[in-house]
Design a protein around this nucleic acid. Structure first.
Ligand SMILES: [Mn+2]
Ligand SMILES: [Mn+2]
Ligand SMILES: [Zn+2]
Ligand SMILES: [Zn+2]
Lengths: 142, 142
DNA sequence: AACGAAATTGAATGTGATTTTCAATTTCAG
DNA sequence: CTGAAATTGAAAATCACATTCAATTTCGTT
């Protein structure tokens, strides 16, 4: 069986929070983990539905929130549309406006500099978004 | 009469684009220019309505889009809520999640670094957003 | 295995910001 | 003035997201 680590993490989270271990939650986690990249709720719902036609959109939506709370998923929001990705180290994004391709980047210097700037104003940063929108190398051929 | 420069800029834009110079557009521009900071459509509509009760929300909304197209306004979108500010040099934002205060910042090093990163991927950046969300100095007292 | 309190599900509905529709009105070139 | 074209604004549509609630499922306890 695949995704054993993540399934145990979900089980632990559910137990600790007096939540129930349902087959829908397991199924949605499996489908989510099978997707690489940044997926919308609707997109994920379609993929879940292909395998489990009885699972509703609302359950997918709520389960993704649960997976975020459990630390297994991260919600991003590019230009107002929510997307989920499998949790991994902090990073920001380059987004192609033509083909939708998403490239991840990370830069310690930018992170340090933005924290220094916030510090000048006595501001405590809780989260941030840094997104670069444009055209990827393949989409510049037109 | 105030805002002469901006009014002429609007008039030029309207003429160049075969659009009409209406009293609503003038009135909304005046109210918009009288506000400092980052205002939502609804907020701006309320301010317009105080002086011009006959002007509808839709006209305010459409006029703000027009002012953006004309380069007089800039639309920002913090956590999914659109806000307008008077156009000025590029900058990014610190946003207090408690009181809503918005602080502007600019950092050439960050701008240069992000362009360098995009360059590594052959990516052409058309626009970007860099927003730091947290608590301002006044809101850390709780 | 059965019970029952509590959580979950999912279809339907609500929400809220934004965007579009369309008939009436206004603008402005000729 | 005239009339074609643009604009207005109330109403309705859209869209993603969020909530409701009756029916179902889970799971600790018998
Ligand atoms: Mn990512
Ligand atoms: Mn600003
Ligand atoms: Zn592309
Ligand atoms: Zn504050």
């Amino acid at each position: 069986m695949a995704n054993e680590v993540e399934k145990r993490a979900l089980a632990s989270y559910l137990e600790e929070h007096n939540l129930k271990h349902t087959r829908q939650r397991d199924a949605i986690l499996d489908v989510f983990l099978s997707v690489t990249g940044h997926v919308t709720s609707e997109d994920l719902y379609q993929r879940v539905r292909a395998e489990h036609p009885q699972i509703g959109y609302t359950t997918v939506y709520r389960t993704m929130r649960l997976l975020c709370d459990a630390g297994l998923a991260q919600e991003q929001s590019f230009d107002g549309l929510a997307r989920y990705e499998v949790s991994h180290a902090h990073h920001d994004h380059l987004i192609c406006l033509r083909c939708g391709k998403i490239i991840e980047f990370e830069c310690e210097m930018i992170e340090a500099t933005q924290n220094e700037i916030a510090g000048r104003y006595g501001f405590r940063v809780l989260r941030h978004r840094h997104e670069l929108y444009g055209h990827c190398v393949d989409c510049q051929k037109d």
